[in-house]
Amino acid sequence: MDKVVACQTCGLVQGVDDVPEGCVAKCARCNFQIFHRRISSRSRTLAYSIAAAILYFPSNFYPLVTAFYQGQHTQTTIFQGIRSLWHDGQYFISGLVFCTSIFTPALKIIGLIFITLTLDWNGGKKARTWIYKIIRIIDPWNMLEVFLLAIGVGVIEMGQVATIHPGRGVFSFAAVVVLTLLATLSFDSRLLWDSPAERKHYQ
């Protein structure tokens, strides 16, 4: 089945033959990858989501920030930070941090894994669409902490009195941010309402 596709990089309109398994089409002019639909969207989304789910644990378990303040060497995980904010009476900020850095990433990861795994089920099409909608809404609110941390490290460098260093958890935390981002990017929402035959062709 021939298709006419415009290259997303150089704009050349060209014919694309059927792409066999394990191959990609490349633009005749600029040699960039061209596609009609996102390639292997389903398995990519699943791979990224699973990787994010795995790294979600160390990112919450290990301290995100190591602070030296008045000689105290404090290692804070995300959850400890939220708890101390709550105890300080900062309920709104505490809730915001909990939502953006613990709740929504988990929701997003679980949601994406659920969608990709249950695509072949006949029922639940509406539920999957709704989950996808929610994921798109909460997306921009994810993982503000890494940026906050970057600012914090820049601002609080006071030598002996106070310093902040990224803790051990920060690498996995950043990895979770990037992986969930890639997971939503690589998900082709058309899979949600494709007929089973189409889905088999495109997934």
Binding site: L12, Q14, P20, G22, C23, V24, S40
Partner: peptide
């Protein structure tokens, strides 16, 4: 013009 088809191991 026809697009080239090449093997990809990315998947």
């Amino acid at each position: 013009p026809k697009a080239k088809i090449a093997r990809s191991y990315l998947t």
